[in-house]
């Protein structure tokens, strides 16, 4: 039997601490440079402008942390996942470290295709300040709604029903410290940006209230039940 032309491996990495201010492109560039420094046998595209064959997931906003982001890497030779993780981490700062590397079993679907939801923790600042009960009330109303149409700024005035994309939403924190815990759609056709969820709550509260996050962490990416 012929050996495959390439081996695809996946790594879970984090984007935390001061490096949360990197943009998605900054992370992609940084990863590519780290991989080139590592000397790992990465597969390139053909042609004049050769690029590494890397596959990133949904962008994290500038300023947001990710505890377990996924990156797909095409390689020209098979190597033990542990070695890949180790050699990458030698070239990455701890705030962008690889926490796990794995290969796919024969015939398994790409983990990107299996993704369904993502969990977020958000620290919310409101101006003027809002009472916890008011925020909880807005969450309750949003969750009770059958649909919630939101005008998405990008996409040229596209109106999207965001309700089916909200799997769970709860207010956390204590005292003046307001947190939102969200589980939002994360598949290709069911993705919801956590910012949108915040906009929806804003609409449901007093119109003069503006909500923004001061901390945002994507804590986990979750696959459909039955898939890993």
């Amino acid at each position: 039997m012929n050996a495959p032309a390439f081996w695809e491996i996946f790594v879970t990495y984090r984007k935390v601490g001061r490096l949360r201010y990197l943009s998605h492109l900054d992370v992609a560039r940084g990863m590519e440079r780290a991989l080139r420094r590592s000397g790992l046998p990465i597969r390139y595209t053909k042609g004049y402008n050769r690029r590494m064959r890397l596959h990133f997931g949904q962008a994290l906003p500038v300023g947001a942390e990710g505890k377990a982001e996924i990156l797909g890497i095409e390689m020209t030779q098979p190597l033990p996942p542990e070695e890949i993780a180790r050699r990458m981490n030698e070239q990455l700062p701890p705030e962008l470290a690889v926490t796990r590397a794995w290969g796919l079993p024969q015939g398994a679907a790409s983990p990107f295709k299996a993704l369904e939801r993502a969990n977020y923790t958000m620290v919310v600042a409101a101006s003027p300040p809002v009472a916890r009960e008011d925020l909880t009330e807005a969450v309750t109303v949003l969750l009770a709604a059958k649909e919630f149409l939101l005008l998405c700024s990008e996409g040229e005035g596209k109106v999207v029903d965001i309700r089916p994309r909200i799997y769970d939403l709860a207010v956390g924190g204590d005292g003046d410290h307001l947190e939102l815990h969200m589980t939002l759609g994360h598949s290709q056709d069911n993705y919801l940006n956590p910012d949108r969820c915040l906009r929806a709550l804003e609409v449901l509260m007093d119109r003069s209230v503006s909500l923004r996050w001061t901390r945002l962490v994507r804590t986990a990416l979750l696959s459909r039940p039955g898939e890993r």
């Binding site: 201010y21 990197l22 900054d26 940084g30 780290a34 500038v62 300023g63 001061t214």
Partner: peptide, 16 residues
């Protein structure tokens, strides 16, 4: 402040 300014990553220390 970093969250509110354009291109905050340029103000970070400790590049590779």
């Amino acid at each position: 402040v970093l969250l509110g300014v354009r291109g905050p990553a340029r103000y970070l220390n400790g590049e590779w």
